[in-house]
Design a protein around this nucleic acid. Structure first.
Length: 289
DNA sequence: AATTATGTTGCGGT
DNA sequence: AACCGCAACATAAT
């Protein structure tokens, strides 16, 4: 599920409900999720949420005690759910009529970590495939990790010239390059395919064969696609909605992802699905060159 | 029923 | 530094 727009959607939802709340105790239902952190539960007792930020697809929780930060990566199947007294659920990737999400059914099969708050509400981290992680770090460790990320496409610090220079040293496909979070942060499989269709670039082009104009165009459309997807509350191709019932609507705007066999909306040629950079890749063989 | 695919990244080896 | 393949894991679809 989550690329930058989905993680941003989760961030905004969680910030609304968690800000100012204090953790009473933490239950680790599967140790792998917190594998890198000793005394995970003990260290979070009494911590008060003050902010949630995001770098690429990584969520960063800040507390009133700024000696400690909680990093959360959803990877493929991580989801946060916040359950309040009225059994209203906030999170990602669930359908509203799923009765297993009622308060008295938590934690459930895929809940890996549960945060019980002092006001009686709870935050649950579910992760079916166990790739995601929760990790406690110091401010210094957090900064070291953040430095490894490239700029996000919409960032004011994004330097087109530096991006061009780095891409022109890469002999891998442009698809592989755009998935590399150290070059440009936030794109995943869906939004790379969508960006390249809009920029009219074939995903298997070697990065170092792109012109400066083409690279600038990629950045422009990456920014546009991500911003539109954030505005739509993200994309998911399984049932998805948030408590307001509007999240996940970017699905309707997809041009190529999971559209194989359907006519390209620009030229009518059938969209194909091939394997590029080891990933299922959707594109128009006619208008992407 | 076995094989294949799935939204992400990190590692080890070249 | 860049790159490639594979690994982590669970489940649904073919």
């Amino acid at each position: 599920m989550p690329e930058l727009p989905e993680v941003e959607t989760v961030r905004l939802q969680l910030l609304q409900v968690l800000k100012g709340k204090t953790i009473d105790w933490v239950e680790e239902l599967h140790k792998k999720t917190t594998r890198d952190t000793q005394q995970f539960a003990d260290r979070l007792h009494g911590k008060q949420f003050v902010d949630i930020t995001r770098v690429g697809k990584l969520l960063i929780f800040a507390f009133a005690d700024d000696s400690t930060f909680l990093l959360a990566h959803l990877k493929m199947t991580g989801q946060f759910f916040y359950v309040d007294h009225d059994e209203q659920v906030v999170g990602g990737g669930h359908s509203l009529d799923d009765k297993s999400l009622l308060h008295n059914n938590w934690p459930h099969k895929h809940t890996r970590t549960a945060f019980y708050l002092t006001d009686g509400t709870a935050l649950y981290f579910n992760d079916m495939r166990l790739f995601g992680y929760l990790k406690l770090v110091t401010a210094r460790e957090k900064d070291t990790i953040i430095k490894k990320f490239g700029p996000e496409p919409h960032s004011v610090e994004f330097d087109d010239a530096a991006f061009i220079a780095r891409l022109q040293k890469r002999r891998v496909s442009i698809k592989a390059a755009l998935l590399d979070q150290s070059l440009i942060a936030g794109l995943g499989n869906i939004y790379v395919d969508e960006t390249l269709w809009r920029a009219k670039i074939a995903p298997d082009r070697r990065a170092n064969t792109l012109s400066q104009e083409e690279i600038v165009s990629i950045r422009r459309y990456a920014k546009k696609v991500l911003n539109e997807a954030i505005g739509a509350g993200g994309t998911t191709f399984r049932s998805f909605s948030d408590t307001a019932g509007k999240a996940g609507s970017y699905m309707k705007k997809l041009k190529v992802f999971q559209k194989n066999g359907q006519p390209c909306s620009r030229c009518g040629t059938r969209i194909i699905k091939t394997r590029v950079a080891g990933r299922g890749t959707h594109w128009c063989p006619q208008c992407q060159k």
